[in-house]
């Protein structure tokens, strides 16, 4: 790169990174790193991204691209910290992605002034939501985090995690389902809801 081009690239890179910093740190934490290790993973990913900037073909894909680098940095750190890496064998699990909080809560024939779904949402605590997300296996947690907290498009998640877009869809469905199940359990544990063995209404 000639000098002025290098300056422009550096300036653009700095702006992008500083804007994404809260998302990068949040993602590193959710990917299983903690404390100073999360910060070190972000710093490592940013330095690597700068070194490899020529590999980025389209600037609009920067977010997915740098999250992919970050994920690899986080996984590397987690592997070092553990004797064995987490196994990735969740995509073929069957009979999942079907828990629905709405079906547990919805009562179609209630009068207009009673809305158990919205009452449930109002009663949810930040801790309930955080614990529900943290209870997910890493493969699901990261996809839910990128989609629902950082508002990534499916294509960006696919790029960030280096998985097919169909896998993004299935992990997202299963992750959200598990998260809703965890929220339901929290609500039952806190006495906000009574356990119910069957789901509510079925779609027509």
């Amino acid at each position: 790169m000639v000098e002025s081009e290098m300056d422009r690239s550096a300036e653009w890179f700095q702006e992008e990174v500083m804007e994404l910093l809260p998302d990068l740190l949040g993602a590193a934490r959710s990917m299983g790193t903690t404390g100073a290790d999360s910060e070190d993973a972000v710093a490592e990913a940013v330095a690597l991204a700068w070194e490899r900037l020529d590999d980025l073909r389209e600037k609009v894909r920067f977010r997915g691209w740098i999250f992919r680098i970050l994920r690899n940095c986080c996984l590397g750190r987690i592997r070092k910290a553990r004797s064995r890496p987490e196994t990735v064998s969740l995509d073929k699990e069957g009979n999942e992605g079907s828990f629905s909080l709405f079906e547990r809560l919805h009562q179609p024939f209630l009068l207009w002034w009673s809305n158990p779904e919205m009452t449930f949402l109002d009663a949810l605590l930040e801790d309930d939501i955080r614990q529900a997300l943290e209870s997910l296996p890493e493969e699901y947690r990261t996809v839910v985090l990128l989609a629902d907290v950082h508002e990534f498009r499916y294509a960006e998640i696919a790029e960030a995690l280096d998985i097919p877009i169909g896998t993004v869809r299935s992990r997202l469905a299963r992750g959200r389902s598990r998260m809703q199940e965890a929220l339901w359990r929290h609500a039952v544990d806190r006495g906000l809801r009574k356990p119910r063995s069957t789901s509510g209404n079925n779609p027509t």
Binding site: F102, I129, R130, L133, V149
Partner: peptide, 20 residues
């Protein structure tokens, strides 16, 4: 109603977990 619930739940998750 289902769509509205899911939309609000999603917004609630982002509000609670996203930090700048």
């Amino acid at each position: 109603s289902r769509a509205e619930f899911e939309r609000r739940l999603k917004a609630r998750i982002r509000e609670n977990l996203h930090t700048d």
